[in-house]
Design a protein around this nucleic acid. Sequence first.
DNA 1: TAAGATTTGTTCGTATGTATC
DNA 2: GGATACATACGAACAAATCTT
Lengths: 253, 253
Amino acid sequence: MDGSSKPAGRTRRSRPVRVAEEIKQWVVERDLRQGDKLPNEAEMIGLFAVSKGTVREAMRILEAQGLIVTRTGPGGGSFVGEVSAERARSLLANYFYFQHLSVADIYQVRKALEPELAASLAGRLTAAQLDELQALAERHPEPARSAEEEKEQHVASLAFHARLADFAGNPLLGFVIGFMARILTDLTVYRRLYDPPNRALWERGRHHQIELVRALRAGDGARARSVMASHMAGAEEMMAAQEARLMRRFMED
Amino acid sequence: MDGSSKPAGRTRRSRPVRVAEEIKQWVVERDLRQGDKLPNEAEMIGLFAVSKGTVREAMRILEAQGLIVTRTGPGGGSFVGEVSAERARSLLANYFYFQHLSVADIYQVRKALEPELAASLAGRLTAAQLDELQALAERHPEPARSAEEEKEQHVASLAFHARLADFAGNPLLGFVIGFMARILTDLTVYRRLYDPPNRALWERGRHHQIELVRALRAGDGARARSVMASHMAGAEEMMAAQEARLMRRFMED
DNA sequence: TAAGATTTGTTCGTATGTATC
DNA sequence: GGATACATACGAACAAATCTT
């Protein structure tokens, strides 16, 4: 439990980095939870025997990782702050900024995971959740008349999947699916559209989502799975025409 | 392309955070690539009209995200550094530190993804890669005689899967599988073993891995998929007995 | 080996900003 | 509005690492 599975491949770590590690250890040892207060700057200076500047750099490191939040003023200071899903997605997006990730790659994973999520959600959603999903699915009853409108509808469709991911009982499954929805959304928002909207495919996709909500409401896991599988196949077809350009964006949160 | 898809939910951002964002923008605008040099501290101070301390805090933020690396001395400075897979895994592990993630959750995803990876790798690996995998699979020909030994073998088995993930042509698929292998490894290393080794299950698992390499060598994707599916079922059975305790570790790199 | 140059690393003192009472 | 308790930011000095000669 000492937090060092690495075989000491001695890189020279700067003092702020070491102090950040010590603070993490300090927090873990005391089993501090979200919202618990850390020592203030002055106390940190004493605790770790470093200057204010070094403490501040260490805090920025922890803050960047989403592990602490800081407030100024009386009663202020630094607090343990649970890493938000949004921050985790952003941090991970930075990694894929440097990878060659194609739309086909994303769909290989989506096709494997989205049906699984759909099946595991059947009969486990509240009426309010189901209504929300249904509202998302039923938006945009008219087919898109412009490329811009088609883009909006695509983003809305991805929002449906992102919401579904939020409802996942399995946090890992939910995270991966939510992450893919985010990447595809960015890709959609920032892409140029050459391709004219494909009305038939769009109509089918919309119908799939509505059918999916119906299956979830009925608690029919097998049907939810198969509807989602069809939906993925159709969605992939829609994306397939588009250039498979890399993700070249930095994080933004 | 301006890096702001967020609807301006204006939180007070400290100046180092803002400077870090400006630097990111500066880098993206100039399309700097891995290894390219950033302005040095003195130039940053001039560029962004802030003090040295603020520049340094901004740099620590970028460094924590893995986006830059810094060296001292002549010819030193800060450089664009591609986010390593290991760092991405660590940052993501921080997120799951705060989530209730069970072994069953991980296996739900493994069962969906590992067979897919196996199938997609058939006939696409070099002889050297296949030999390496085979060597990993053939380690520990003897069944474990102690709980400690069983732990080691389990870690070795996970290393096989991690290596397979490294070879993935699909970076997203590879990352997710590698991440799960890492979490399970941590879980194995830091767990107390009450359960006696199960020889039959272990033998079957070892056989599966060897069979998998054979299928990959033969380029038989369908067989690779089904062998991996069996392997996952067996592995889940082995893990099932263990307590589903949460991931409670901070990142360590 | 040693000296010098270059760049980041670290400290300290002081002043300012901000939220609470 | 004023007092208080924090973080925030600046600037100047000095230390350490590392490359070149």
